[in-house]
């Protein structure tokens, strides 16, 4: 099979670029622990409201030791609670569960992004940078910044309206 020399050159350039990119991603994964969150924890979706953790009165933000834990439930087409307050510069754990179908979750100004799969609890650990959220969020009178937390996995006809507010307070 004859391949035109120009095609071969483009192919090698593309292969080299992909190799460099994969190398950099592998390096940051190994040396800096930058990798997609991985957490497997099952939960019964239909009985979410009856669990101790995801019952409505337990949702929201709580400080547990040195960590701030936020618990949310996503359901068509709202996020409960509709607003949470998180501190910047502090290790936070965000735990999300779905009450019905597959949802996705992204917090603007951060790298928090995960699927929220029915039957499982999604958990992400991170630290929010106040400078990063300040660039994309709305500044409030009390010095905090509000950014959206939105569903980024199509879940039905009201998907575009499914979002919540995250108020980030400076450290």
């Amino acid at each position: 099979m004859h391949v035109h020399p120009l095609e071969k050159r483009w192919a090698w350039i593309a292969v080299a670029m992909v190799a460099v990119m994969i190398g950099l991603v592998v390096y940051t994964a190994v040396a800096m622990s930058i990798h997609p969150p991985s957490h497997i924890e099952a939960i019964e979706t239909a009985r979410l409201h009856l669990t101790k953790e995801f019952a409505e009165d337990n949702l929201g933000v709580k400080r547990e030791g040195d960590t701030v834990v936020a618990r949310i439930v996503m359901a068509r087409y709202h996020v409960e609670p509709p607003e949470i307050t998180l501190p910047a510069g502090t290790p936070i754990v965000l735990r999300a569960a779905s009450a019905d179908v597959l949802h996705g979750l992204h917090v603007a100004g951060t790298n928090i992004g995960t699927q929220v799969v029915p039957g499982y609890v999604s958990e992400v650990h991170t630290t929010i940078s106040f400078d990063a959220v300040s660039r994309v969020g709305v500044a409030n009178a009390d010095g905090s910044v509000t950014v959206p937390l939105y569903c980024n996995e199509y879940c039905g006809l009201g998907h575009q309206s499914m979002w919540a507010r995250v108020r980030v307070t400076p450290k």
């Binding site: 990119m21 790298n111 990063a132």
Partner: peptide, 16 residues
């Protein structure tokens, strides 16, 4: 790609 990865993505902090 490198600018966006190291300049935009990584500064937002690691997520585990």
């Amino acid at each position: 790609w490198i600018l966006l990865y190291f300049g935009r993505f990584l500064p937002l902090g690691p997520v585990r």
